[in-house]
């Protein structure tokens, strides 16, 4: 029991990681978009858990808030709006299933082979606790304030684009 408590963090990390991976596989494999969406939500939540375990709680919170709360809810609504008789809902895979899967496996293998020798630099500063919210906030608002402001421009552009797309959908090209 004490061993369990002592290694709780590692165990949780492993459980969350395996679950996130399983969710990812399900996203690719499940036929119904709604189920795929649910699988993706679960993956995201597990990832949020991993972030929490790593100590970056605010990222975990954003992960759940933005991804699950905004993006995926949006996605789910759209799925509900769509016509389930669409053949795309019944036929799962594209004609490139086997070559695609094979090459994707190759990609995974290649990438993982890249990290296999070990990543830790010999003399890493490696403060075990990672970093705090204060550090993040300082870096964010001192060094990256311009990037932060620019994201607002990006969001504005996205809003305008969305409106434009909707107007096209309505058929008035004003």
């Amino acid at each position: 029991m004490t061993w369990l408590l002592a290694n709780l963090e590692t165990i949780l990390l492993a459980v969350f990681g395996v679950s996130a991976l399983a969710g990812g596989v399900l996203v690719v494999v499940l036929r119904q978009p709604m189920r795929a969406a649910m699988a993706l939500i679960s993956t995201m939540i597990f990832l949020g858990g991993i972030y929490g375990l790593l100590g970056v709680h605010f990222i975990a919170a954003f992960q759940v808030l933005i991804y699950v709360g905004a993006v995926m809810v949006f996605m789910v609504y759209v799925i509900m709006l769509l016509d389930p008789r669409d053949p795309a809902f019944r036929r799962r895979f594209s004609p490139l299933l086997f070559p695609g899967a094979a090459v994707a496996l190759g990609l995974a293998a290649t990438l993982i082979r890249g990290v296999a020798p070990g990543t830790a630099p010999a003399a890493a500063p490696a403060p075990a606790r990672g970093f705090s919210l204060a550090e993040f906030a300082t870096a964010f608002l001192n060094q990256y304030w311009l990037h932060f402001e620019l994201t607002s421009v990006l969001l504005l552009a996205a809003v305008i684009a969305a409106i434009a797309v909707i107007r096209v959908a309505r058929g008035d090209h004003g």
Binding site: V27, V28, T43, R92, S94, L96, L107, I112
Partner: peptide, 22 residues
């Protein structure tokens, strides 16, 4: 990396545009 590869595979092998987005 596994998640990234899975996602890329999903873009290639899935037929539904929404699932490709996911």
């Amino acid at each position: 990396l596994a998640l990234f590869s899975l996602g890329l595979a999903g873009v290639v092998v899935r037929r539904n545009l929404l699932v490709m987005l996911m």
